[in-house]
């Protein structure tokens, strides 16, 4: 037994020495990400973010890696591990990690961190947000062109200044296209209430709507289900949600996390990333409308295309705040922010 232990300990010692030697060389930029508990294969944010890193590896020559979190107890150790490994930038995927990244950033002020979908919480944390009012504007235009009843719905998962940007863009896109259209708003107060989303969408359909846009995460799954069952249309969010119900999802307002992550890497390579809040827009390719167009009419596609160009060349500035929206469209139109 004793002998066995001796052999084991010697092996451990030798191997850790070999390890230390392996870490000696280092010059390329190294970026790593930590997934939230969804894991790397979540077919959503984490997977998209990793795709962005792989693109950075291929095009920028950045060395990339990821660590998966199985439970929230893994956030801290994962961030610490990456810190110990000396990565130039550590990206946290999703606001779930807000507390963990704040703690890590305060403990290691010289390390660069970034977090997706959350404001910067320390000087060395880059808070990455997306101009979601722009993609919402495009789906608003699409909804206005496609509605037959001149009546559409909007389901929001939570009312906050950030979430309201979805509503401002959507409302602006609709009203700019056809001021006659009636919009039914609903605040589900949850991102995980599938049943609630379904009930809300069903009542909107009963009240005459034929298209409902959701910015409500899991609650929105219920919206899409309702549209599918009622033979109406839903508009997805964050990614191309057409795969959930190809016959019922008209289009989706996409948040290109992969492009956002890629832009972050570029910032590190060029030495321009120094913390603070950044907003990625349509011009960065970070927001846009889904590529799936099977349910869209040619007229709607043309209108969306025109709106996209107008946003890009600055002819249309989509309101992103309550003041800007109320100034352009009146305070009584969008009621969720009251």
């Amino acid at each position: 037994m004793k002998k066995f232990l001796c052999v084991l300990l010697t092996a451990v010692m030798l191997l850790s020495l070999a390890n230390a030697a392996a870490f000696a060389e280092k010059e390329t930029v190294r970026v790593a990400m930590v997934t939230d508990t969804g894991g790397i294969n979540d077919q959503s944010f984490n997977a998209l973010a990793w795709a962005g890193l792989e693109k950075a590896q291929a095009e920028l020559g950045v060395e990339v890696a990821y660590l998966e979190s199985v439970t929230e107890a893994d956030y801290g150790p994962n961030l610490e591990t990456l810190y110990d490994e000396g990565y130039d930038l550590i990206i946290c995927i999703g606001f779930m990690m807000a507390d963990a990244v704040t703690e890590a950033a305060n403990a290691h002020p010289e390390q660069l961190y970034a977090i997706i979908d959350n404001a910067s919480t320390a000087a060395n944390v880059t808070g990455v947000n997306f101009a979601t009012e722009q993609c919402s504007y495009l789906v608003g235009v699409a909804a206005a062109k496609m509605t037959k009843t001149n009546n559409v719905g909007f389901v929001i998962g939570m009312v906050s200044p950030v979430m309201n940007t979805f509503g401002y863009g959507y409302y602006a896109g609709i009203k700019d296209t056809n001021p006659e259209i009636v919009i039914q708003p609903y605040n589900a107060n949850s991102f995980g209430d599938v049943a609630g989303g379904k009930v809300a969408a069903n009542s909107m359909f009963t009240n005459g709507a034929d298209i409902v846009y959701h910015a409500a995460g899991g609650t929105g799954i219920g919206v899409i289900e309702a549209a599918k069952e009622q033979g109406k249309l839903a508009i997805g969010v964050d990614q191309d949600q057409s795969y959930l119900a190809p016959e019922a999802v008209l289009t989706s307002a996409m948040k290109r996390v992969d492009n956002g992550v890629f832009t972050l890497c570029k910032g590190v390579v060029e030495g321009t990333l120094h913390g603070g809040d950044v907003l990625y827009t349509m011009a960065d390719g970070a927001v846009g409308i889904a590529p799936t167009v099977t349910l869209m009419s040619q007229e709607a596609l043309d209108a969306v295309k025109a709106a996209e160009e107008a946003i890009l060349n600055g002819t249309i500035v989509v309101p992103a705040t309550q003041e800007a929206f109320d100034a352009a469209y009146g305070a009584d139109l969008y009621t969720l922010d009251d």
Binding site: A11, V12, L15, S16, A18, N19, A73, P77
Partner: peptide, 23 residues
Amino acid sequence: AYGSLFGVVFDTTKTMSYSFIEY
């Protein structure tokens, strides 16, 4: 891989506390 597995656990007092206390 196994070398690093054991190396990581017994690397420093910090990694040992991660392994044997926190986790």
